[in-house]
Computed example of a mutant assay.
Amino acid sequence: MPELPDVEGFRKVLVSCAKGRAIRRVDVRDAGVLHGVSVRRLRDALEGRRFTEPERHGKWLLARTGGPTLLLHFGMTGRLLCARPDEALEAHDRVLFTLSGEHQLRYRDQRKLQGLWLADDDSGVAHLLDRQGPDALAVDREDFEDALSSRRGHIKTVLTDQSVLAGLGNLLADEILWRAGLHPRLRSGDLTETERRRLYTHMRRTLRSAVTAGCVPPRDSWLTGHRDDPDPICPRCGTHLRRFRLAGRGTVWCPQCQPDEA
């Protein structure tokens, strides 16, 4: 599933492929990925405009044009790619933006769980994002700690709640909690100030590394690099990792590094 680092990578694709380029044509190959906007309205709003500097908030990508803003959410399987217009299409290429300079931006998505929205102005963007918490990469420590201390749910569930903090998904939450030495079932509101600060520090470090990689990297030194092993071993202490489901999410943790104090 694309998480904050992946979407930051898609933002960079948009910059390199489309920033400053005129949108010559919009081809919607599958209207099922459009939300609250028709094919005709999308074309009328975007064709002839130019993509400007894009922004990212959590898992949302904001493709600005100086007028309407195209908002993209990648769900479980979405991607943004840059191609040439004459390159062969794939079955899951849902929307194509043909640009000046022989560039084409492609929204590709197999499962179509999210998709594309259009906002006419900044108030429309704010309306679409009004249930999003602060961006996990931009939030300051005080706001982060306030958000966690005011909630009673399990810390893993709170971290992946986009209304609390935007951008963290399953892989990042497990990785950050493992690095911070916190069990995923601990109650968010029960964390000490020291634990909240440690969690914030490890979140920042993990996100910076993952953004550089363009994904949550499956490195040998990361929990992420072992979570799908048949018999996963903690890369830090060598203990056998454990699995369970928490709020419907597959969760991996180390019983030695993350003692259960719930």
Rank of each mutant, 00 (worst) to 15 (best):
S100T: 14
S100V: 01
E102R: 14
H103S: 12
Q104S: 03
R106A: 06
R108F: 01
Q110N: 03
K112W: 00
L113R: 11
L116P: 02
L118S: 04
D120T: 01
D122A: 13
V125W: 09
V125P: 06
A126L: 05
L128P: 02
Q132L: 15
Q132T: 08
Q132P: 06
D135M: 07
A136H: 09
R141L: 13
R141C: 07
R141M: 06
E142S: 12
E142M: 04
D143I: 08
L148P: 15
L148R: 10
R151T: 13
R152F: 14
G153H: 14
K156Y: 13
T160N: 08
D161K: 12
S163P: 09
S163C: 03
A166D: 11
G169H: 00
E175V: 02
E175K: 09
E175Y: 11
I176R: 01
L182C: 02
P184S: 01
G189E: 14
D190P: 06
D190R: 15
T192F: 00
T201W: 05
H202M: 03
H202Q: 15
T206G: 14
R208F: 09
S209Y: 07
A210K: 03
A210L: 03
V211P: 08
V211M: 14
T212R: 13
T212Y: 04
G214R: 07
P217A: 13
P217M: 08
R219A: 13
D220Y: 09
S221C: 09
W222T: 01
L223I: 07
L223F: 04
L223M: 07
G225K: 01
P230W: 08
P230Q: 11
I233F: 02
P235V: 09
